[in-house]
Design a protein around this nucleic acid. Structure first.
Length: 443
RNA sequence: GGAGCCAUAGCCAAGUGGUAAGGUACGGGACUGCAACUCCCUCAUCCCCAGUUCAAAUCUGGGUGGCUCCUCCA
């Protein structure tokens, strides 16, 4: 499998550290608000990677953090009149609801900053001790000049960065590039440290949590592409200073989601919240996965509408196929797990090409067409069973699972009534049955 | 100001040297008790200019346009 590694700026053959296992960490949310459809992209993408690796037979261990100590959370707690902890808990819950709504596996490991403070403090102490960090007043800063390869991930040169007028200026820092590891803080939730009362800096938590959860170098570190600099660059700097590694062998970043060619932002008022999406979540997943993960998506209602229809088409074919197999009791016997290797191979080939989900979806589309033709043509049960099982596998990897219940005896009676009413040209009666069957999701 | 990405039909998009996947919309046809669904057909020479090559959407150079990062926004 080929995977684009941001660190190397090229596609590479993916080779896991342990033969049968893949370890993945991707940066999760700061929990001070609901998530928008752009925040949903890494959830969908890394869920899909996970499911694809599992499909390939790997055991996958995945973690994603919650930043639950942060000034934005403090601001939100003042605004909502509840404690910081309550704010964090509220939006963690909302986040996980959205994760499940998006049909993503929610079983990943979920470390929180607030539960890793002692580890973070000793990590910072380690850096002060080995000279990669310095204490300034009651703050601690990372000394970027202590690291040789700073800028390797984001392709930036330190002298260019210093020249950039937009680097934060501070009297406390030796250099504009240095970033805070620990900051003096006296409001809301604070922690006591060797340097005084304060809070950890943002970039430190991921290093510490990765090390705690996985115990060293991991296979894949992911996140949105806007995290490449400075966040991931700074993570690597710290990891090199303390662990003497770059945290992950593969750095994988998904592109953002814009709304009609513009970045979504509160100030522009064009944010689309996941909780407000009206479509089937799988239709949104289909939309996201119809783009290469490294391409920016320009979301719009027109676009969503197109994918609503595309998903509906898949859903309809699935429903027809399921019904036919159910009516013929083809789902009952033990031999009904045969798949079409030819189809799965095409799907895998697309996915092996740096998760080329657009091409993987086109495999589904062509199978859907074949299913529809077969159901109205020869109705070869063997072919249909293979198609059904193959479709299930592909839909599951992409998180587009469609679940259908086998018909009960009553349902079968109803179905028979419908067909015989039609045969007898009792159309008014037939239409009533049709509506009932449709409501039950059988047809 | 510095850096990067992108530009393919009405819309979305795959393709990375050998002559344009797929989806969606539109038009035509078939099927149908009606509706829906479905199937078939039709629909582009790939932003502009120059170059490399037997051959370029695909490589090189120069434009133009759009987006993003450099601001704890995933």
């Amino acid at each position: 499998m080929k995977l684009y590694n941001t660190y190397e700026n090229k596609e590479e053959e993916f080779i896991p550290i342990k033969k049968d296992q893949v370890t993945i960490y991707y940066c999760g949310p700061t929990v001070y608000n609901y998530i928008h459809i752009g925040n949903a992209r890494p959830i969908i993408f890394f869920d899909t990677i996970k499911k694809y690796f599992e499909h390939q037979g790997y055991k996958v261990i995945m973690a994603s953090n919650f930043t639950d100590i942060n000034e934005k959370i403090l601001a939100e707690s003042k605004k909502e009149g509840i404690s910081e902890k309550e704010v964090a808990e509220k939006y963690i819950k909302a986040y996980l609801n959205d994760v499940r709504w998006l049909n993503a596996d929610d079983s990943f490991i979920k470390p929180k900053v607030s539960e890793n403070i002692p580890e973070i403090i000793s990590f910072v102490e380690e850096m002060v001790k080995n000279g990669s960090a310095y204490v300034s007043g009651e703050d601690v800063y990372f000394k970027v000049s202590s690291i040789k390869n700073y800028g390797a991930l984001s392709n930036r040169k330190t002298d260019e960065l210093i020249q950039g007028a937009r680097v934060e200026v501070s009297d406390k820092k030796e250099s504009g590039l240095d970033f805070a590891l620990w900051k003096e803080f006296h409001e809301g939730i604070t922690y006591s440290s060797p340097w005084g009362e304060g809070r950890p800096g943002w970039h430190t938590e991921c290093c510490v949590m990765i090390n705690k959860v996985f115990g060293g170098l991991i296979d894949i570190h992911g996140g949105g592409s806007d995290l490449i600099f400075p966040h991931h660059e700074n993570e690597i700097a710290q990891a090199e200073a303390v662990y003497k590694n770059r945290l992950a062998n593969y750095w994988v970043h998904n592109a953002r989601v814009n709304f009609e060619d513009e970045k979504m932002s509160k100030s522009l008022g064009n944010v689309v919240w996941v909780k407000d999406l009206k479509c089937d979540p799988r239709a949104y997943r289909l939309l996201v996965l119809s783009f290469p993960y490294r391409n920016i998506i320009s979301y719009s209602d027109v676009l969503q509408n197109q994918f609503d229809k595309e998903f509906e088409k898949i859903y309809k074919a699935y429903t027809d196929l399921f019904l036919y197999l159910d009516l013929n009791h083809a789902l009952d016997n033990e031999l009904s797990d045969k798949v079409s290797n030819e189809i799965i191979d095409r799907f895998d080939k697309a996915m092996d090409d740096d998760l080329n989900t657009p091409n993987a979806i086109s495999v589904i589309s062509s199978l859907v067409k074949d299913i529809n033709a077969e159901l109205r043509g020869k109705k070869d049960l063997d072919i249909l069973i293979q198609a059904y099982n193959s479709l299930n596998i592909m839909l599951h990897v992409l998180g587009l699972d469609i679940k259908k219940e086998k018909m009960s005896e009553e349902d079968r009676v109803l179905y028979d009534k419908w067909t015989s009413a039609r045969k007898d040209k009792k159309y008014e009666e037939a239409d009533k049955y049709r509506e009932l069957l449709s409501k039950k999701g059988i047809i």
